[in-house]
Each structure stands twice: as structure tokens, then as C-alpha cells.
Simulated scan of single mutants.
Amino acid sequence: MKLIWSPETASKAYIDTVKSCETFSESSVAELVSAMAAGWNATLIVETWCQGGDIATSIGLAVASHHTGGRHICIVPDEESRSDYNNAITKSGLLVQVIVGGAIEAMEGLDGIDFLVVDCKQDEYERILRVAKLGQRGAVLVCKNASSRDGLGFGWRSLVDGKSRIVRSVFLPVGKGLDIAHVGAKTGHVKGDKRKWIKHIDTQSGEEFVIRK
């Protein structure tokens, strides 16, 4: 099994997020991630949030989980952050499961993540991506506020385990920058299958494609 794209579900989530975030001046990120999470039929959506962070993205992910029937979990660092987060999300009329504590430790108890959003403003965002237990169907990984990141040494391939592969990655100038990667379904080695994965990088866009030959 692998993640299957549903344009109809993506459209519904996008429209509902537009309505839910109409009071926010910068909701383009929320609409995009909502459409992606719903379109890929994510069943376990996880995000990290810090005090003072954007709440619109959380609203978009909550809307997506409503359309997929999945779980939406937000990890916050402390009780003060949880209070601020709950107050903000409650005003939207949505409910989100919140985990308080270090994101690295919280990831240990979450298995089968198929949509993950982290904030590049967090010092440990790369470690969070490395320890995340992704689903067998594959996953979509999103780094928001990516424009503020020191890009030296960053590479998606180094952030996923050896059983996974990056199908495609792209940087979008949406909001303060979104760096997105689609991780393929985990597969074991098939006896007698000598086909190889060929990597190609578009020199103009920087997008990475993996083709099976």
C-alpha cells in the first residue's frame, strides 16, 4: 500500500480552510498544507508548535484530519504553550490532541506518521525529522519558515532511514518558505528484482526525482 492522491478531498479541505482562516492575513500556508494532508489521505498528522507561532497552519491541518477521519496531534514544549495553543485553536471551533514535552521524546510514542510539519525556527527540527517513525505507506514531510533556515548541510536524503526513499522534494516560496518532501512507501528487497532507482535533479528548479528502471 502507498499514499494515494485524492484531488476531490484536497479541494474540499482547501475550501474549508479558506473559510476557517478568513480572519488571518497570511493563510496561504494553511490552505496548502491542508489540501496536501487531505489529498494524501493522511491518517496520522503531526506538527510541532511553539509559543507565538502561526495558528492558521494548525487550523488547516485540523480541517484536513476531519476530511480524512485521521488523527491530528500537535506537540508543544510546555504548559504555557499548551494554554496559549488551546485558547487560539478553540476560537476556531476545532479540537486538536496536544502533547506537552520535548518533540524528540514525543516522537518516540508516535508510530505511522504520514504527514509531518515542523518549524525551521526550532533548533532541533532536523533531529525531529530523523527520529519520526513514518508510516509504511510513505509520508509527506513539511518544513515551514524554511527561508530562515541555514541551508548549509541540509539534505532530505540524510533525514530518512535506509528503508525509505525520497520520491520528490521541492521548495516553495509560500509564506516564509515551505520545504516539502514526499517519502515513498517502505518496501523490502524483492528476490530476483534487479531494477534500480535512478535519481535525477532538475538543475533549474532544484527538484529531485527518483525513477525506477
Rank of each mutant, 00 (worst) to 15 (best):
N145L: 07
R157C: 11
R165M: 00
G151R: 10
D179A: 08
E80A: 03
T48P: 04
A139K: 03
A106D: 07
N41W: 12
R82K: 10
T9Q: 14
K186R: 07
K12D: 13
D54N: 08
D161L: 02
A37K: 10
E31G: 15
I15D: 10
V190Y: 04
V33R: 07
G52D: 07
A30E: 00
A88M: 02
I166V: 13
L152Q: 07
V140R: 00
T23L: 11
D123P: 13
V117G: 03
V183D: 01
L129P: 03
S158A: 07
A35P: 05
V18P: 02
L141F: 06
A88F: 05
T203D: 11
L95V: 13
L172C: 03
S148C: 09
H189G: 10
V170Y: 15
T203I: 13
I75Y: 02
Y14G: 01
C120Q: 10
A13M: 05
A139V: 09
G138E: 07
S147C: 07
G135F: 08
I45N: 03
E31Y: 04
Y14F: 11
D123N: 12
T23A: 06
K19F: 15
L129F: 07
S65K: 04
V46I: 06
G192K: 00
L152N: 10
R82V: 12
D202H: 02
A132S: 02
G69P: 11
G60S: 03
E207Y: 06
C74I: 00
T23W: 15
E47Y: 00
P173E: 04
S158T: 09
R149Q: 13
I45V: 06
V96W: 01
I99P: 00
S28I: 01
V117K: 04
V160M: 09
K2S: 01
K186W: 10
C120K: 14
V142A: 05
S6N: 15
W197Q: 09
P173M: 12
K121T: 13
C74K: 04
L110A: 09
M1A: 06
V98N: 04
C120N: 13
A38W: 04
S148M: 14
L129R: 01
R71L: 05
